[in-house]
Computed example of a mutant assay.
Amino acid sequence: MPLTPLDIHNKEFGRRLRGYNEDEVNEFLDQVIKDFEIYLRENKDLQNQVASLQERLDHFANIEETLSKTIIVAQEAADEVRSNAKKEAQLIIKEAEKNADRIINESLVKSRKISLETEELKKQATIYRTRFRTLVEAQMEMLGTDQWDTLDPKEENA
């Protein structure tokens, strides 16, 4: 068990002949008691300070651990967002490619339809020109005959 200032104060020494000067010993013991009390108080204060610092250290260690976990969670969330963004971008690209293919196919169908309609119109224009030419030629032929010189209907029937 550690020595206390009270133990020092209550310590009695046996007397002998030619012993130490009792007043000097008591004075020295009083000084030792004062110094010992100072050291005990300082020791107690230092223990309290160490406990307080240890508590703060534990607090900061908890904060550090929490921050580390938060950083890891944030990194994982960022990775997940990045991954989701990539997937969404790929889906958008696939959808755009499908739409592009659909638009191209519709355009090709329309182009073929217009081409067929154009060919049909060319055929109809050729037929019209041929009929019109035949009509004009027939009319020109009529104009070139002598029947116009005589207006007798009897001759026409003959």
Score class of each variant (00 low, 15 high):
111 S>G: 10
20 Y>S: 13
91 L>S: 13
55 E>K: 08
51 A>K: 10
57 L>S: 13
97 E>S: 07
23 D>G: 03
144 G>P: 01
82 R>E: 15
93 I>S: 14
41 R>Q: 12
106 E>F: 00
58 D>W: 00
115 S>P: 01
143 L>M: 12
59 H>P: 00
42 E>M: 06
26 N>P: 00
14 G>C: 05
84 N>H: 12
76 E>H: 08
21 N>P: 03
15 R>A: 14
104 I>K: 08
100 A>C: 02
7 D>L: 02
18 R>V: 05
96 A>H: 12
133 R>K: 14
103 I>C: 04
113 K>Q: 13
124 Q>P: 04
56 R>T: 09
100 A>D: 03
74 A>H: 08
88 E>D: 14
85 A>N: 15
15 R>W: 06
58 D>M: 03
129 R>S: 15
99 N>Y: 00
19 G>I: 06
110 K>A: 11
26 N>V: 04
52 S>R: 10
34 K>V: 06
57 L>F: 01
94 K>V: 09
135 L>I: 14
47 Q>D: 09
102 R>M: 06
81 V>A: 15
140 M>P: 02
31 Q>C: 01
77 A>M: 09
125 A>Q: 14
107 S>L: 04
2 P>G: 07
124 Q>D: 10
86 K>A: 14
101 D>Q: 13
142 M>H: 12
51 A>H: 04
50 V>N: 09
90 Q>M: 12
129 R>L: 11
134 T>S: 13
105 N>Q: 15
97 E>H: 02
69 K>S: 09
92 I>C: 10
40 L>K: 05
84 N>Y: 05
146 D>Q: 06
121 L>A: 15
62 N>I: 02
24 E>P: 00
9 H>L: 14
109 V>F: 00
8 I>C: 02
141 E>C: 06
33 I>E: 12
74 A>W: 01
98 K>F: 03
86 K>E: 15
122 K>T: 12
116 L>M: 11
157 N>Y: 01
26 N>E: 11
103 I>Y: 01
140 M>V: 07
128 Y>I: 10
145 T>M: 07
87 K>H: 09
57 L>K: 11
137 E>M: 05
151 L>S: 08
31 Q>A: 08
148 W>D: 06
60 F>D: 12
94 K>R: 11
51 A>G: 02
89 A>N: 11
5 P>R: 03
14 G>A: 13
25 V>N: 06
58 D>T: 11
70 T>G: 05
10 N>R: 06
66 T>I: 03
149 D>P: 00
149 D>G: 09
95 E>W: 01
54 Q>F: 00
40 L>H: 02
151 L>D: 10
114 I>L: 14
143 L>I: 08
99 N>I: 00
38 I>W: 02
72 I>K: 11
124 Q>Y: 07
99 N>Q: 10
66 T>F: 00
126 T>W: 07
107 S>Q: 07
34 K>A: 08
